[in-house]
Amino acid sequence: MTSPITQTRTPKSRTYLYALLITLFIFATAFYVSTYFNSQRIQDIRSTQDNISTDILSLETQFDLLQQRSCDSVTENTILPSELISLGNQLSYMEAQNSSTNKDEIIRLKRLYSLLQIKDYLLMKQLALKCNLKPVFIQYFYTNIGNCIDCEKQGYVLTKLAQTYPQLRIYTYDYNLDVSALKTLISINDVDNKLPALVIDDKVYYGFQSEADLINEIPQLATLEKATSTAATSTKK
């Protein structure tokens, strides 16, 4: 039998103090663990970006070589759109976490992501010209500023299209991101700040475009293979 009554109700300041120190330690540990995993994620994203950079460099080199050779070894899938989509998903997730500690790092990664997308887009256009390929491009501009509900809805539609047509090349850009190449792209395409905006075959579409609208606007979609099984991906708003 255990009798606890020998302790009285008189408070022991030592217990209060130790409890405070232990609680602070637990909070510090939770902060450290959370920060550690977020850093790991950033590392993952960096590593994916490095891979894509290497892929692009490789393709550029391959393209230079192709000036003298045939296009036999080149297809629309030379750079996997899925890799870019996956990177976009990871960045979207990190952004949604709303972690103030990683905010600057995420913006930096987003800028690099935008650049990689632009490079992929330009290279694929060149390849298409040289090798008579017919890739289908959608350039999508969104904003995180304010409450852009249509951007969110547009994201759902594009995600579904990307899942249905794995060869469809969708590039998503944060309209307000401070990247000079992105600003040039916006300027070249004459995209106004009326978001969401889509650029398809050099034509700009403003406002929400439903799946049916897009299928109508892009007849080439019918030429793309449909996915046999859908993977769980999402396109950022």
Binding site: S34, D44, T230
Partner: peptide, 21 residues
């Protein structure tokens, strides 16, 4: 409402495990 029901195979990518504080 926008894209209907989409069935996905469940993914277990550790990247997406919530590890917020």
């Amino acid at each position: 409402q926008i894209v209907g029901i989409q069935l996905h195979a469940p993914t277990f990518d550790l990247f997406y495990f919530n590890t917020s504080m």
